[in-house]
Design a protein around this nucleic acid. Sequence first.
DNA 1: GTTAGCACTCCTTGAGTTCGAGTGCTAACA
DNA 2: TGTTAGCACTCGAACTCAAGGAGTGCTAAC
Lengths: 352, 352
Amino acid sequence: MNLDGRKIAILKALIEDYIETAEPVGSRTIAKKCDIGLSSATIRNEMSDLEEMGYLAQPHTSAGRIPSNLAYRLYVDSLIENIRATSMEMELIKRKMEDHLSELNRFLDFSAKTISDSTGLTAVTGAPRMNPGAISHFEIVKASEHYLMFILVTNTGMIKKRQVRILTHIDENSILYLKQILNEELAGCTLEMITADKVERLKRRFNDNFELLGIILEFVTETLAASGMGEYYFSGKSETLKAPEFSSMDKVLGFLDLVEDKEQITSLINTAAADNKNGITVVIGDESPILKNKDLSMVVSTYKAYGGRNGAIAVIGPKRMNYGKVITTLEAMSRLMSEILEHTEGETDEER
Amino acid sequence: MNLDGRKIAILKALIEDYIETAEPVGSRTIAKKCDIGLSSATIRNEMSDLEEMGYLAQPHTSAGRIPSNLAYRLYVDSLIENIRATSMEMELIKRKMEDHLSELNRFLDFSAKTISDSTGLTAVTGAPRMNPGAISHFEIVKASEHYLMFILVTNTGMIKKRQVRILTHIDENSILYLKQILNEELAGCTLEMITADKVERLKRRFNDNFELLGIILEFVTETLAASGMGEYYFSGKSETLKAPEFSSMDKVLGFLDLVEDKEQITSLINTAAADNKNGITVVIGDESPILKNKDLSMVVSTYKAYGGRNGAIAVIGPKRMNYGKVITTLEAMSRLMSEILEHTEGETDEER
DNA sequence: GTTAGCACTCCTTGAGTTCGAGTGCTAACA
DNA sequence: TGTTAGCACTCGAACTCAAGGAGTGCTAAC
């Protein structure tokens, strides 16, 4: 017994009906819907075969069938039709998105909103993972009489500041001088390159500003060691919960627990994104232990930001989601985001 | 008919029982619980009076009574007992919080978690509203052959950067020179102080780098104009939804809609925080149109961050929340956060 | 191989019933 | 006059039961 064309047609029709209605699908419904000129009895036989093969399941004896994980997997991998988003619409979205470009977090927030609006599900956008890289510039600013501000810029565009209280007086000239030393010694250094040797050299050149050097080096090493874990931006959570599968409270809590747990979301998205560097990854229900027993699926894509770093965008929703729509939306959005972010090369601000 | 001591005792006992059980409270329950030596019949009479006075309500004739908004208001304003959090516990929390101080967003995130852990409800912490202030330092860094990075630091500790593509070649010395001009002319300037006059002077001194000046000025004015609207950090949403009042789906969606809508949350917290600059504000149910028909209450407090700016912390939960616990928790946390943030005076980093 | 027919299963729905918590009222009591 | 015991009444929650219907699986006929 194998999957011939008729079985596939029936399976496809069944999945699509189930996606639409969230109700178990009976043989008569399919007989009416897809006009291959078969009676419900024949379809019943085929469905029985499909159940045996693991593609369908019955909630109880006298109910219709629902697709299994295996069926969804087949559907996503080979049955789905690519609905192309109209380029007109995309052009409009792109223009709107460019308006939100001035700050990365706003941009990602808006992108998440756009995706969730278009899919009706929960969208997540993840900031590109920051690699601290090497020091490109170190700045010391005298903020006030007793405060200095350090600013460190790295070649990956990361920028960190710290304000520290100083007890002894330092004049502007000394600051300028120390800054020069630091930039000479540290420019181009990654964390690994700040060796004991280097520190020793700096100590010698700093001579009487021993204490200050300690504070600065602590700041620098901390900054370079920071993983810069990407933030995630969510949109459309309550939208997703309106689906009928969330009528029972434990499903709702299952979903919210997942979405609120940053660790889980991070690991889920990261593994999925790593799986497939450039395309779309679909994780269906129990395929990930994190989604287990939650009747949820996730579709993940990546976008390229400046500096070749990858960010992730994802949609989370009931296993019975409109995969075609979600996949095309994510494809289009990741293309769009890559275009905008690669193009503008780090045109993102940060404050505070 | 007025509120004598006995009525108040009964009302208090009823509210506290209802807060605990979320079930309408009958006369017998109160007779057993608070031992003023009264029979259920007497209490029944008193409860009937209290209902007439608007403090109690009955879901249906043969059910117990539940407190009205008026009763909660009375309870919060005068009946509640201040449970003081042990200073030991607070000392521990403080130490933990100081560990999370290195970045403001992490700190606020952790604070929200701490509050929601201790109350079992949804906690929100809002970053202090940033006032861009005046320019304290302007930096130009040559990121690569075709990219310059501008960094602007203001006296309120705000820091913004932007990377721009340049077509013409500029050597390091010119950059140094231009930077010097900019710092001379712009240091101490607020947005209002960048007048046409000032721009004219800069133009003259920049002479051949006309185009670059335009880009820089655009960046500067945009940065100074940015309102720096405070972000909010949530924690414990799914925790709140475990309360029995959220057994019906529309209550769940009501709560999630509120929590997801940044505009609403912002306005709700801001008006509440503005109401009462230093203490705690309690908004009970319908007292705010935003909470109307959602059976929710909110408790808001503020904390002082460096530079005298105020941030907000709040707890959102069912109207039937443990106000005593929530209020003392928020009081303690706002004191703690003020101590840490005022003390460390802008010890907050930012990256990206 | 396909289909009509039919018995069977099992969920859903709604009506009817019981149960019990709680009230309001009245009459008795201190 | 305030308090309490007693009792009839109310009304939602929970349970049972039967009817209805959607869907299946099997068999026999085409």
